[in-house]
């Protein structure tokens, strides 16, 4: 009976290692998903601020070319300008038509749409206070009739910020949960090796000699877990991009690769630290305490 029990020790060890790899992979996938959301939240918000919120500065009908150029030259020097464009009357009419509005020319016989300068801000300047100041600055110019920007959308950005903070909180919570889960999974895997560790100590092996193979195994298992999580993550992302093409525009490849590297480091580091701690714990324990 005892021999049969011993023959299954190695098999049990392998099973617990496999379960440990699967468990660690799952929690790393979870962390990866949260991390990816965090990365894309930032990208999405930046993309939204810099491309979807623009300021229109409308010019008087009587504005000379020289005054218009002076205004544009002034605009160019401002640190908050991401990009700008001058919209003449013809372009304004085209935009009007492209928006599906009725052509007014047959009725009015003249293009009533004003010339304007449209510019987008760098994301860090897209807030209510900055936009108010920028709007006030251009409004003071005598050639400007009106300055417009989507005030409602800018107000909504505060909500985006709250969502971002919430996501960051969730990410930290998950990171702590991941560390605890991986630690416990590794400890369970090491529990089946406790007598092996004690026997090694009984025959005169030092703690480093005993810990070395377990630490090496932890590095290998942590790497396998992280690689599984990364592959599954990339496959899921590719599938999502094929279903939702807009994801491609906001996806940050560099940060996604960095996230994959981070997952690898977290997987290996937590497995290694947990394993080493478990080995030391069993080495410090008395033989009777192992039962």
């Amino acid at each position: 009976m005892e021999q049969a029990g011993k023959s299954s020790t190695t098999k049990r060890g392998r099973t617990s290692y496999t379960m440990s790899i699967i468990g660690v992979s799952l929690v790393l996938m979870l962390l990866g998903a949260i991390g990816w959301l965090g990365i894309n939240y930032t990208s999405l918000l930046q993309y939204y601020k810099e491309n979807k919120i623009s300021v229109q500065v409308y010019l008087r009908e009587t504005t000379s070319e020289a005054d218009k150029d002076a205004l544009i030259n002034d605009l160019k020097t401002k640190p908050y300008v991401k990009k700008y464009s001058y919209i003449d009357k013809e372009t304004a009419k085209k935009i009007w038509s492209d928006l599906g509005n009725k052509d007014f020319m047959p009725v009015l016989d003249t293009n009533i749409l004003p010339r304007s300068v449209e510019f987008n801000l760098k994301s860090e300047y897209v807030d209510t206070d900055s936009l108010s100041k920028i709007s006030a600055y251009f409004s003071e110019n005598s050639i400007v009739t009106d300055v417009q920007y989507p005030k409602g959308l800018v107000g909504d950005l505060k909500l985006f910020r709250k969502i971002g903070l919430f996501l960051a909180g969730i990410a930290i919570f998950f990171l702590i949960a991941v560390i605890i889960l991986i630690d416990n999974t590794t400890k369970l895997a090491m529990f089946s090796n406790r007598f092996l560790i004690k026997t090694m100590q009984m025959v005169g092996a030092t703690r480093w000699f005993i810990a070395k193979p377990f630490d090496l195994r932890a590095i290998i298992n942590g790497t396998i877990s992280a690689v599984i999580a990364i592959i599954v993550g990339f496959l899921t992302l590719s599938w999502l991009k094929s279903v939702i093409p807009d994801l491609e525009a906001i996806s940050n490849s560099t940060l996604t690769i960095l996230l994959a590297v981070l997952l690898l480091i977290i997987g290996v580091a937590i497995s290694l630290v947990s394993t080493h701690r478990s080995v030391i714990k069993y080495l410090k324990m008395k033989l009777d305490d192992l039962y």
Partner: peptide, 10 residues
């Protein structure tokens, strides 16, 4: 020397 041998079973 132990009653239950304590050999490394792996």
């Amino acid at each position: 020397v132990f009653q239950d041998f304590q050999l490394l079973t792996d």
